[in-house]
């Protein structure tokens, strides 16, 4: 089950906490990867760790032309593209009343617009192959909202709506389009939080602990697999029960 041997995947934001866990999980199931990210050094080091079967494709996702070139680059490097994981995301938190235009624009451009551009480009080779898996990493915040994150919540909810539209357009061609919505996942960002704050955070989670990157990787592997062929337009919430939607 869930064997990805012979499949090729593009993962954006692959050098980050969740992104690297997703990339490792896909590679462990046999997929060949094109990993993308903006930090070239980190990305190359991660590629070296994954092995020579995989390629690193640095990309600045706020540059539309660079984003449009990314899928063709991945197809060129891997020979095909079966799986696209839109994982890259940024935050520019601020109360809405204080939010600058740039803070709004930057988050929407990287989290939502870049994902759309990649989906648009990936649909072409996937349609030809009559097979494809598009998985976007959204967030519990896209469903529940979060003060200080009007831009981020909008971008993540936007991914869900976009994926449902795409799922309907592409279902007849063997392409599924889904989202994975992580709750609180342990990362370098959460590790530095004071203990009191961590306790307050986990008190809201029925599972009683933060999630791990591997929990997200496993969800992505499932949706990427051939076995998930009848699942499309869905959002898989991986949040320890903190929001049941």
């Amino acid at each position: 089950m869930f064997d990805l041997t012979g499949m090729s995947a593009l993962v954006t934001g692959a050098s980050g906490g969740i992104g690297s866990a997703v990339a490792r999980a896909l590679a462990a199931q046999g997929a060949r990867l094109a990993i993308s990210g903006s930090n070239v050094e980190k990305l190359e080091a991660f590629r070296a760790e994954l092995g020579d079967d995989h390629v690193a494709l640095p990309c600045n996702l706020s540059d539309g032309a660079a984003v449009d070139a990314l899928v063709p680059q991945a197809v060129e490097a891997l020979g095909q593209l079966d799986i696209l994981v839109n994982n890259a995301g940024v935050t520019r938190d601020n109360l809405a009343m204080r939010m600058k235009d740039e803070e709004w624009d930057q988050v929407i451009r990287v989290n939502l617009e870049a994902a759309f551009r990649l989906c648009r480009a990936a649909a072409k080779p996937m349609m030809k192959a009559r097979f494809g898996r598009i998985i976007s990493i959204t967030s519990v915040v896209g469903a529940t909202g979060n003060p200080g994150q009007a831009n981020y919540a909008a971008s993540k909810a936007g991914l869900v709506g976009m994926s449902k539209a795409l799922a309907q357009e592409l279902a007849s061609r063997g392409i599924t389009v889904n989202c994975v919505a992580p709750g609180f996942i342990r990362s370098a960002m959460t590790d530095v939080l004071p203990d009191a704050q961590k306790e307050a955070l986990t008190a809201r989670i029925p599972a009683g602990k933060l999630g791990e990157g591997d929990d997200i990787g496993a969800a992505v592997v499932y949706l990427a697999s051939r076995e998930a062929t009848y699942v499309t337009g869905q959002t898989l919430h991986v949040n320890g029960g903190m929001a049941m939607i």
């Binding site: 072409k124 349609m127 030809k128 357009e169 592409l170 007849s172 061609r173």
Partner: peptide
């Protein structure tokens, strides 16, 4: 409409 896109491709 999707068939048309594919035919054009």
């Amino acid at each position: 409409s999707l068939d048309i896109v594919e035919l054009v491709m």
